[in-house]
Design a protein around this nucleic acid. Structure first.
Lengths: 258, 258
DNA sequence: CAGGCAAACTTGTTCAAACAAGTGCCAATC
DNA sequence: GATTGGCACTTGTTTGAACAAGTTTGCCTG
């Protein structure tokens, strides 16, 4: 069973290292759904950590819904939707790889233009401000899967003119360039495929698409990106679990009556 | 500022009581977005709890995305999507009330019938098993907002024949009857309005609807309900936030190529 | 053989101490 | 006036102890 010694990473707290290792064991299938984890006492011995530290790591996994259980019994692996790391969730490319599919992208347009009303509102700039916009078709295993319309505030966006947007992940590239992409807000609804969508995805106009609007901010809250991603719903969905013990952070939000 | 003394509730741990009180302060608007919470030292004094207990409560709020911040500074209220409690998320009626809207419902049908392939699969029963099904139109402030198709395994479902399904929340009623509704799984995608949807919601067939498929289980994992809820997307969406520090429990899931 | 009870084991909660690391403010110096 | 350093304050991590509460196992008795 769990016999790997936790190695203290100087840059990372012990509880985070342990949580990551436990996640890896679950992700690798070593502990399958329904399997019981080692007891806290065992984890303490094997990780050379105090019980408080072990519990701290387990609490993180509980909050993610990865494990569950109750007093008197070691935790079990939940029949779990695996939670996805920040970057896996934010980057289509990374996500596709993580689910064993080949990501692809075709850039339709990269432009600098005035924001317009909606983009201005989301990026918290003036309507007449210049922003950088990208329109891309994203593919999974060669199949068109999603249309991505991203708008960037100009400082971050100008970096994209030095990047081959057909090569992969803008999110990863910007992070490599030192841009602080740290927070995301995701609004999920449904829209009808417009003319561009229908042409690129190869579906009829009006076809229901699963839309994710994503707002990406720095760790201090400055908005850097607003993106409108439209998925073919037969190719992807969003899934979450909640329990009476742990709230799901997902909220159902009412909109104004049209 | 925070001057209310935390009262120890014998049935609830101190850290949960404190977390609930902090949530209430935020929800009431007493602490607005961006406002700083009292320091941990102050919270310890005022709640008569140890620093560990205070941090435990704050950790829960962090995991929900309700507060954020870093070392050396007290937490601030995030520009937060408020997380919703288990029951608020699972019950349309309770959710509507929580967002200040008047819920309504009109039962189209309550029936006992054989499950059929998809319901059987989701409820983990045989296709020829009898299940109880409800079709309802749900309204917000008198406006049609959602079509709900729920299927219950027979033990729980038979209780519904003694319940006025036009009066409110099935979820709440079943819980009051002692049914252990403790876990939920939610799959969000988009579908085209079918003939029933279009008639009840007053939209054209093929209109994109935001679909939430919900599977409700007991705390030990027995599936009790499968529901297919279809929202008018202009009336509701699902929103979540994630950060590089705290994963969102929501996952993007690929489906098989059609 | 079945049921009940006690003991051992397990997780959940609370408290406290110590140290690390980050923030902010004030005073001194250039 | 600007910059730097020091100090007080703040949060983050780790450890450990004690107790509560739940689970499991083994043994004994009917």
């Amino acid at each position: 069973m769990y016999d790997q010694v936790v190695t203290q990473n100087k840059n990372q707290p012990k509880h985070q290292v342990l949580a990551a290792e436990l996640r890896a064991h679950i992700a690798s299938g070593r502990w399958a759904e329904g399997d019981q984890l080692p007891s806290e006492a065992e984890l303490c011995l094997q990780s050379n950590a105090s019980r408080g530290t072990v519990r701290h790591a387990l609490a993180a996994l509980r909050a993610e819904g990865l494990i569950s259980g109750g007093q008197g019994k070691p935790p079990v692996v939940a029949h779990a939707v695996k939670s996805q790391s920040f970057s896996t969730f934010m980057s289509f490319t990374e996500w596709a790889h993580s689910v064993g599919q080949e990501p692809g992208q075709r850039t339709i347009e990269l432009a600098k233009r005035t924001a317009g009303e909606q983009v201005a509102q989301q990026l918290q700039v003036e309507e007449s401000s210049m922003v950088v916009q990208v329109l891309r078709l994203r593919l999974l295993d060669g199949t068109p899967a999603m249309i991505e319309r991203s708008s960037f505030e100009p400082e971050a966006g100008r970096l994209l003119f030095d990047f081959d947007t057909d090569s992969g992940s803008i999110f990863s590239y910007l992070r490599e360039q030192g841009i602080d992409l740290a927070r995301g807000r995701h609004i999920i609804d449904a829209v009808a495929a417009d003319a561009t969508d229908s042409e690129l995805l190869g579906v009829a106009q009006g076809t229901p698409l699963l839309r994710e609007q994503r707002i990406t901010s720095t760790s201090t809250g400055e908005v850097l990106e607003y993106s409108d991603d439209r998925y073919l719903p037969q190719l992807a969905n969003f899934t979450i679990e909640n329990t009476s013990e742990h709230r799901a952070a997902l909220s159902r939000i009412p909109s104004a009556v049209a």
